[in-house]
Simulated scan of single mutants.
Amino acid sequence: MNKVNASAEEAVADIPDGASLAVGGFGLSGIPGALIDALHAQGAGSLRIVSNNCGVDGQGLGVLLACGRIARVTGSYVGENKEFARQYLSGELEVELTPQGTLAERLRAGGAGIPAFYTPAGVGTQVARGGLPWRYASDGSVAVASAPKETREFRDSTYVLEHGITTDYALVRAWRGDAHGNLVFRKAAANFNPLAAMAGRVTIAEVEELVEPGTLTPDDVHLPGIFVQRVVQLTPEQAADKQIEKRTVRA
């Protein structure tokens, strides 16, 4: 039952080239920064990432992206990451853009064992019709495009079929956790971390505060330990290292 690993390096040591990973976080809020840094040092490449966004230049998943270690991204937001946009438009990176709510539900469905579901999001657009550019050629033409998706009528409305997502691994960050893998998230970190954790076959959680089993009451737990295989306790310095994408202050 004790799922605690000695270090982030130990926890990610077996992630191979070509692995698929669901990565938690929303912007830079709640990103598993220590695990990402450990994976960067570990050296795995050709990674297939599922995450709301791909960090920013030089931070979060942007560190792996800048080193050419990511082959494919499934996400909903390109954001402020110029290198992400450059690699996508130049044909170096395959990108499956999907509506944010759909992405969240695809992760949850995969973790719950639901193979597919119908949603109104994307009906009447290229999301349903197909043709979204997944990969560009070097001359700017579309090398790989999305296929049309199945649609169906329910109660006089049209819905599009989306498939659940499961990944080889998941990397997440929690505010508190215990040795059994029960996790508690705070604020915006609760947006995608629990869903990413559910989708991973092997889920690795970095926690800011590690508590003894039994400390967290069932009502406190946001994600039960059945979804988590490895836990890493952050140092105080790592726990305090929380980046901000944009800081705006008064003159």
Rank of each mutant, 00 (worst) to 15 (best):
38 A>G: 05
20 S>E: 01
85 A>T: 10
32 P>R: 07
87 Q>Y: 10
76 S>N: 09
113 G>M: 06
35 L>C: 03
66 A>W: 04
101 G>H: 04
40 H>V: 07
39 L>E: 05
85 A>G: 14
46 S>H: 03
91 G>Q: 05
42 Q>K: 15
15 I>N: 08
23 V>F: 02
113 G>R: 14
92 E>P: 03
80 E>H: 12
44 A>H: 01
28 L>N: 04
96 E>S: 02
98 T>E: 06
86 R>Q: 14
52 N>Q: 10
44 A>V: 07
75 G>A: 12
15 I>W: 10
99 P>E: 00
15 I>C: 10
83 E>S: 09
29 S>P: 00
86 R>S: 10
98 T>D: 03
22 A>F: 07
105 E>G: 12
122 G>D: 06
40 H>R: 08
25 G>F: 02
113 G>D: 08
88 Y>H: 14
120 P>D: 14
89 L>F: 12
27 G>P: 09
32 P>M: 00
83 E>Y: 09
79 G>P: 15
58 G>E: 00
102 T>S: 00
125 T>K: 01
64 L>R: 05
33 G>A: 12
84 F>S: 02
99 P>H: 02
87 Q>G: 08
25 G>I: 03
14 D>E: 13
15 I>L: 10
110 G>S: 14
27 G>I: 11
42 Q>R: 14
105 E>I: 13
49 I>P: 00
70 I>L: 07
65 L>E: 13
77 Y>M: 10
57 D>G: 01
91 G>K: 07
82 K>T: 14
69 R>P: 01
47 L>W: 00
105 E>M: 14
105 E>N: 09
38 A>K: 04
69 R>Y: 07
83 E>R: 13
99 P>D: 06
22 A>Y: 05
39 L>T: 02
76 S>I: 09
62 G>P: 14
69 R>K: 07
61 L>E: 09
29 S>A: 12
104 A>E: 13
53 N>W: 14
44 A>M: 06
82 K>A: 15
127 V>I: 11
14 D>G: 11
91 G>C: 02
60 G>E: 15
39 L>K: 04
112 A>W: 06
83 E>K: 11
102 T>H: 05
57 D>H: 02
56 V>A: 05
29 S>M: 15
60 G>A: 07
116 A>C: 09
50 V>K: 00
35 L>I: 04
105 E>D: 08
117 F>A: 15
90 S>D: 09
101 G>F: 04
116 A>P: 10
103 L>F: 06
110 G>I: 06
107 L>F: 11
124 G>N: 11
68 G>R: 01
85 A>W: 02
77 Y>E: 02
56 V>I: 11
19 A>W: 01
43 G>L: 00
41 A>W: 07
68 G>Q: 08
99 P>G: 01
124 G>F: 11
53 N>K: 08
19 A>Y: 04
111 G>L: 12
45 G>R: 01
127 V>G: 04
87 Q>H: 07
30 G>P: 03
128 A>W: 06
107 L>Q: 07
128 A>K: 04
114 I>N: 08
59 Q>A: 14
65 L>T: 05
52 N>L: 12
113 G>S: 13
45 G>K: 05
14 D>F: 14
90 S>I: 12
115 P>G: 11
67 C>Q: 10
92 E>L: 11
119 T>M: 15
59 Q>Y: 09
47 L>D: 00
116 A>S: 12
86 R>Y: 08
101 G>W: 09
45 G>H: 02
29 S>Q: 11
126 Q>K: 13
125 T>W: 00
106 R>P: 09
122 G>N: 04
49 I>E: 00
